[in-house]
Simulated scan of single mutants.
Amino acid sequence: MKLSVIILNYNVRNFLELCVLSVQSALLNIDAEIIVIDNNSPDDSCDMMKKRFPNVRLIENKENSGFPKGNNIGVAEAKGEYICILNPDTVVAEDTFDKVLAFADKQKKLGIVGCKLIDGAGNFLPESKRGIPTPFTAFTKVTGLYKLSDVFGKYYASHLNPNQTGKVEILVGAFMAMKKETYIEVGGFDENCFMYSDDIDLSYMVLKTGRSNYYFHETTVVHYKGESTVRDEKYMQRFRQAMDFFYKKHFRSSFLFDVFMKTGAFFFSIVKKKQAVLSRPEIDHYTLISNNENMRVKVEKLLGKKVQLLDNTSENNLNSLQAENEKCIEIIFDNNHLSFKSIISQMEKFSKSRFTFRILPRESDFFIGSDNSNDRGEIIHLDKN
């Protein structure tokens, strides 16, 4: 078996269903397995997995063991030469793993491969590629200086643009592909890691073996980031604790770190004391991309507003749709009609438009999506009264 996809879930049942559907579609021509580890979710995630995906390996933890330990449990059971750590609130394209494995097989000293990540609105997520968070680099992150110039842009690896493949230092835990032997050699995720530092630590441990980590831009994966993180004082405290863990493990205790972090916290509290989650935009127009008129009627009745039916997602059609409407348009992609690759492509292409996006997963009774990277996401059930 060549590839094991490891998905750690906690309490995101509908996102998990969408994720596993996309992964199954992407593994049709690959010798692979899917392993889902559930960290004692209080929802019906496990029941859903057993009913809908009976052939997927499901590990039911009796406690929430955390991200590092949960993934380590999954990797220990993996039979693949390669593993891919994947968040449950992601959607992959049908050719994602084909492309990533083909790229990985060509590298002589392969570390970890990450890919281009976008949020639920189709916007590029800068954490797809990062640099080692030295004290100064972390300072530019928390103060926002990284946005001003490439000189300050090392935190988000500004030496590469989003459409450029190349070596990077740090990759995000939402999508990490590597050889299982590499993961085992460095000890996997450190189970003592604090939030925000586990993927940084693993990436750095792999670099220390002499291997190279890569950002691979030729496939795009949606990462909804379902757990909203308000950029407030609590976020700043957690970020500082994560960086402190990383420095204490890999470097000497640094007076410089304390200076930069305290200064950064000061500016953070003044400039960005609280970043409110963007409110849901008012939807003026709904469009279902499908060939199913019965589904259109069902969605229209559910929403209580007129829903237009389009049977394809050509750029011309969506451009025309945008030009004809001045307010926000919700695009609902029917996965019974469209591939995940097509859906992701359209989300990315029209990310700067007035569109919001939802996906109706194949043979499911809900549609799902989010409007920005801080949004917990929206789930609308078709049988809702």
Rank of each mutant, 00 (worst) to 15 (best):
S269M: 14
S290F: 03
I283Y: 08
K349I: 10
T263S: 06
H285S: 07
L303F: 05
Q346F: 10
L309I: 03
V277I: 15
A276W: 08
F267L: 06
S339G: 08
M347Y: 05
D334M: 08
I289Y: 02
I270Q: 02
A265L: 03
I332R: 00
N317F: 03
E326D: 11
G304N: 02
F268N: 04
N312F: 12
L318D: 02
N325R: 05
F340G: 14
S279N: 14
N336E: 14
V307K: 01
F260Y: 06
V297L: 11
K298I: 05
L310P: 06
T287N: 01
N319V: 03
K273S: 07
E324A: 02
K301W: 07
S279M: 10
T287Y: 07
P281E: 10
A265Q: 02
C328Y: 09
K327F: 09
S345D: 09
M261Y: 10
N335Y: 13
A276Q: 14
I331W: 00
E326Y: 02
T263P: 00
F260P: 06
F268T: 01
D284S: 15
V271P: 03
N319G: 12
N325F: 02
F333M: 12
K272L: 13
K274L: 02
E282Y: 13
L321H: 04
G264S: 00
Q275G: 09
T287S: 04
Q346V: 15
K306C: 04
G264L: 01
P281I: 11
E348N: 11
N335E: 15
K301V: 09
K272R: 10
N317I: 09
M295C: 04
R280N: 07
N319D: 14
N316G: 01
S269R: 15
K349F: 09
M295W: 00
E315H: 11
E324T: 07
S314T: 14
Y286D: 00
E315Y: 12
K349M: 08
I332F: 04
L288D: 01
I270T: 00
K272P: 13
I343F: 14
I289D: 00
H285V: 06
V271L: 14
N294A: 04
K273M: 11
L303T: 03
T263V: 06
F266A: 08
